[in-house]
């Protein structure tokens, strides 16, 4: 029911969501199989991921077409704003769980493991952060803050600037500034990810720092890993927005697709700052 005179927009029945459900079902069962020594599970998982991408392509394509077709009035636009804000809030809470785990281990459980009671069990344990815990024998070197991580901080902060420059371009109807700004942001995002990949391989091969390196390894890799995953998603979204900008989408008045992605990018940026301070630096 694409009715333009109506105050609200209610879409037609859609077959995209069910693709998403099938995708998640095969991703979940594939992953469960794979993790439990059924190696063919990975094909089920990959099939699920492919269906998911197909679904997103179709679904977001529909949304972009509807948007460009002028179906979305200001009411719908405001709805998107609320929706995106609450989605980002949910992401904040997801990261909060992992930051909470970091806090708990650093401030509570590791010191407890070093107290007098535990001396009986682990007499040689030195309860100093960073640690792999009393029972993990392998030694590791923690990741320093002022090499690649500092560079990455610089990269992400600059990408926050370039995306804002792109936004200004859009507002001024300067398409060239929009496209160049976005392209620079995507490039910075990709560079960030490459550096992070290098950092991980460095950690594994030279620092002996692994996911299994106790409290430090777990929080380090899970926090930076989920952040990196979010940067990947953000970069993909920015790329889509870039392609849409090149195709002439968005106007100075009507461009929530752009803004939503920019919000997301800033959110990823802020998480990184927290990571830099709490995981790398302190």
């Amino acid at each position: 029911m694409l009715n333009q005179s109506a105050r609200y927009f209610v879409p037609d029945p859609s077959h995209w969501p069910i693709f998403g459900s099938v995708a998640l079902l095969s991703m979940a069962s594939g992953a469960a199989l794979w993790m439990n020594e059924a190696s063919w599970g990975k094909f089920v998982l990959i099939a699920g991921v492919c269906i998911l991408f197909f679904m997103m392509f179709g679904w977001f394509g529909t949304v972009a077409r509807e948007s460009e077709g002028g179906k979305y009035n200001s009411q719908v636009d405001l709805g998107f704003r609320w929706g995106m804000s609450w989605f980002i809030f949910s992401e904040v809470m997801f990261f909060a769980a992992f930051f909470g785990a970091l806090f708990y281990m650093r401030v509570l459980s590791v010191p407890w493991l070093g107290d007098l009671e535990h001396k009986l069990l682990w007499p040689d344990f030195n309860a100093q952060w960073p640690t792999a815990g009393p029972g993990v024998a392998e030694k590791f070197t923690p990741m320093g803050a002022w090499g690649i991580p500092a560079l990455n901080t610089f990269l992400l902060l600059s990408s926050g600037v370039t995306v804002t420059i792109a936004h200004w371009g859009l507002l001024k109807n300067n398409r060239k500034q929009l496209i160049l700004g976005l392209a620079a942001t995507v490039a910075l995002g990709i560079t960030f990810l490459c550096f992070q990949a290098y950092e991980y391989s460095h950690a594994y091969s030279e620092l002996n720092l692994k996911l299994s390196s106790g409290a430090y390894g777990a929080t380090f890799f899970m926090l930076t890993g989920f952040h990196g995953f979010h940067v990947t998603i953000g970069t993909l979204m920015l790329t889509v927005i870039l392609a849409r900008s090149i195709a002439g989408h968005f106007t100075a008045e009507h461009h929530f697709g752009f803004e939503g992605v920019a919000w997301y990018w800033h959110f990823v940026d802020v998480v990184w700052l927290l990571l830099f301070i709490l995981v790398y630096w302190l």
Partner: peptide, 14 residues
């Protein structure tokens, strides 16, 4: 499955 120690005291978790 991936060797983290969030809930394992031997690795500093709890």
């Amino acid at each position: 499955h991936f060797g983290t120690n969030f809930f394992n005291a031997a690795g500093g978790g709890d």
